[in-house]
Design a protein around this nucleic acid. Structure first.
Lengths: 194, 194
DNA sequence: AGAACAAAAGCGAAATATTTGCTTTAGGCA
DNA sequence: TGCCTAAAGCAAATATTTCGCTTTTGTTCT
């Protein structure tokens, strides 16, 4: 029964405080256990034990295993660097899209997507935000070089969306050739902004 | 060795048998309870009670609540009729895409998507299959009329995929205007097959 | 620095949910 | 009809989740 408020969620109040330490221990425990055993044998008590924490801590903070897994997933998905600089806009775009495809269509990538989408919180928004931010970074770098570019939204709709649709729903994941051809279609047809 | 079964998980061996009746009762119970109480207060024992069945029946057949919900969702999502005939290809397409958007971006629609994607079985494939089949039906009807058409795959990539991407990841769902403009872009640019 | 406060964690008992071995029932088939 | 098998029922054993209460910890105010 879910009558409880279930407050903030993902971030402890300040870095370095107890909350932050406990959260880090729990996230770490989840990652370790996911590496050791199949995902569906993971339980809250097991995570708690590994993290050196009581189960009720986890239940009070996350509510259930799904929310916790979603948090860990979105945390893992957060880009740790700006997209690689290949020297050209089209090169940057293609390189980033291909690595994104690799990551998302892999076993662990798909599992993380499932966790995030299955939980259905604002974590899904973060997921899309990270993607948009990386594309924006590529866009800005190209603009600084004076290259003509596509709107980030066009890339999202033209490449990322079909890619995700196939990863999520289709029997077989998209290939790098698919990605390249979606991108080509965009680069040929529509008006670039200069 | 009898090579028989290859049993699909969701369907009892024959319609009318005990399995089929039990499955129907359980599906029905899930739908009723979902209509009465918030989704996360649903439990397997509650479903079992409502369906007049023992919990172990559900656990043995579906494994857990998530799988059962995914089954019910994909069953609900199955189209019960061929797409409405508006008289023209473009009319048919637009009408169907708009109703699909309505359905998928509604509260219940999003919940069902979450259930299906979160469970991560071949149910996701069925979901995409239904969509493809409806689009193919529209395509065939247009071909029979002698109209020029788009490849179903183009519609999937150009309209359905961006639509789903936003429903799943974005803060705000796409509008019918979005759908219309995605479709327009397709209809103007690329080669139609006659 | 020290005291007081609030937020979060620990603990353990109670309530629920899940698993499992065995029995019973219902359909399919010779 | 009378076996035969797959699925359901039942109930005991486990495992999990929830919840009230206590304790710890970090922050803030003198």
């Amino acid at each position: 029964m879910s009558t409880t408020p279930l407050i903030p969620r993902t971030a402890g109040p300040r870095p370095g405080g107890r909350s932050a330490r406990v959260q880090a221990a729990i996230h770490q425990a989840v990652r370790e256990l996911l590496a050791e055993a199949p995902r569906d044998s993971l339980t809250v008590p097991a995570v708690a034990t590994r993290a050196g924490v009581t189960p009720s801590t986890i239940y009070r903070r996350w509510g259930d295993l799904g929310q916790l897994l979603a948090d860990v997933a979105v945390e893992t998905l957060r880009p740790e660097a700006t997209p690689e600089d290949t020297g050209s806009y089209q090169g940057d775009l293609l390189a980033w899209l291909e690595q994104y495809r690799d990551e998302m269509s892999s076993g662990p990538g798909r599992a993380m997507l499932r966790d995030v989408l299955g939980a259905g919180t604002e974590n899904t928004g973060k997921c899309a935000l990270y993607c948009t931010q990386q594309l924006d970074a590529i866009h800005e770098r190209a603009a600084a070089r004076g290259e003509s570019t596509l709107a980030t939204e066009a890339v999202l709709d033209g490449v990322v969306a079909p890619m995700m649709y196939r990863i999520l729903f289709a029997a077989q994941a998209p290939t790098n050739e698919d990605v390249a051809s979606w991108l080509d279609a965009l680069l040929q047809a529509p008006r670039h902004s200069t």
